[in-house]
């Protein structure tokens, strides 16, 4: 694994004041943070930087902070990717159920890349949206906003009374990596429009808005011009260094700061990140196990007896979370 190179504690972020309603954002002890979205969210768990940075930005006095990454590659605000044998509604129901089970106090939601990139080709199979998602930019955008609102109704409504913060995050910008990869400048310009719409949606609903798009470069991609020092592997999906920047941008966007003087390569930080990744691995097998057809769905009469193993991941996750907690304390003790 390539060494990651951020100097988390040396950087003072947040040059511009975040657009926040009322009180500044702060994590509290025993906060449960759920991350919802598509590929950009799902892959964050494989790198661990986002959770590591948020964890440390919360500060030493905040204890028992836990994260649940329930991002799903290729997902849309209709919940397309989360459905198995049924229509996308099954996916939305699943998301609602999982959010409810996870009992978040803070919900970080990031959708929009797929709709912005597939405006004319359609980005959902939902019967209520398939045709409109193909109809053109304006129609696609209004469908996205309308559906995003409904999705938030569904998951915020079902999340339980503990939920106190909802943050809508604009997707990170795209990059041009040059031939033979496609030019993303037109998509990125469209993404800027989606960003505006997400900001307005957050405002209308009284949620916080975090402009990750702007913080990571915004709408400055020019046709035919290659991005300098690219952070994505294909113009869309971020790699190791990219997720460091995403994590830092989220910290800054929430109005938090990192102070101190420890490198990401410090053994204590590395150990913390590894433990976070292991916890994520265990949680993945818990909330999104393989073989669901046999364990829970229409062939459960054959293997449903083995579904009892799935909750057996819970104590393992808890144990790993204790390790995260103590490793985190270890990092703070070095400051």
């Amino acid at each position: 694994m390539k060494a990651s190179c951020y100097l988390i504690f040396a950087v003072v972020l947040s040059a511009s004041a975040p657009l926040l309603p009322a009180a500044p954002f702060a994590f509290r002890s025993d906060d449960r943070v759920a991350l919802v979205g598509n590929t950009v969210v799902e892959r964050a768990q494989r790198f661990g930087h986002v959770e590591t940075l948020l964890n440390l930005a919360a500060g030493a006095e905040v204890k028992g902070l836990t994260f649940r990454n329930i991002g799903w590659s290729g997902d849309s605000v209709f919940g397309d990717a989360r459905s198995y044998f049924g229509a996308p509604k099954e996916g939305r129901d699943r998301l609602q159920r999982v959010v409810k089970e996870v009992k978040p106090t803070v919900l970080l939601v990031c959708y929009g890349t797929n709709a912005a990139m597939t405006a004319k080709k359609g980005w959902t199979d939902d019967p209520a949206g398939a045709a409109r998602s193909k109809a053109g930019d304006e129609e696609s955008l209004s469908l996205f906003v309308e559906t995003y609102g409904k999705l938030l109704d569904l998951i915020v409504g079902g999340a339980g009374t503990e939920l106190r913060e909802v943050v809508l995050i604009s997707p990170p910008p795209l990059e041009n990596l040059g031939h033979p990869l496609p030019d993303q400048s037109a998509n990125n310009a469209r993404l800027a429009i989606y960003r505006d719409a997400i900001r307005d949606l957050a405002g209308a609903r009284g949620h916080r808005f975090l402009d990750l798009f702007q913080r990571m470069g915004g709408n400055k991609l020019k046709a035919g011009e290659q991005s300098r020092g690219p952070l994505t592997i294909n113009g869309v999906h971020y790699g190791e260094a990219g997720y460091v920047l995403i994590g830092e941008s989220l910290v800054g966007g929430l109005g938090l700061t990192l102070s101190g003087n420890l490198s990401a390569n410090d053994s204590s930080v590395v150990a913390l990140r590894k433990s976070i990744m292991e916890k994520n691995r265990l949680f993945f097998h818990r909330w999104r196990p393989s073989n669901e057809t046999y364990l829970f769905l229409f062939r459960k009469h054959e293997q449903g007896n083995n579904a009892k193993e799935i909750p057996m991941f819970d104590p393992l996750i808890e144990k790993e979370e204790q390790s995260v907690e103590s490793l985190r304390a270890g990092v703070f003790s070095k400051l």
Binding site: G74, Y84, W123, G235
Partner: peptide, 17 residues
Amino acid sequence: IYIHSHVETPYGVRRLL
């Protein structure tokens, strides 16, 4: 048969159910 895939690409999302 039972696999439902949703994969993002630089050309948009591709789904194979």
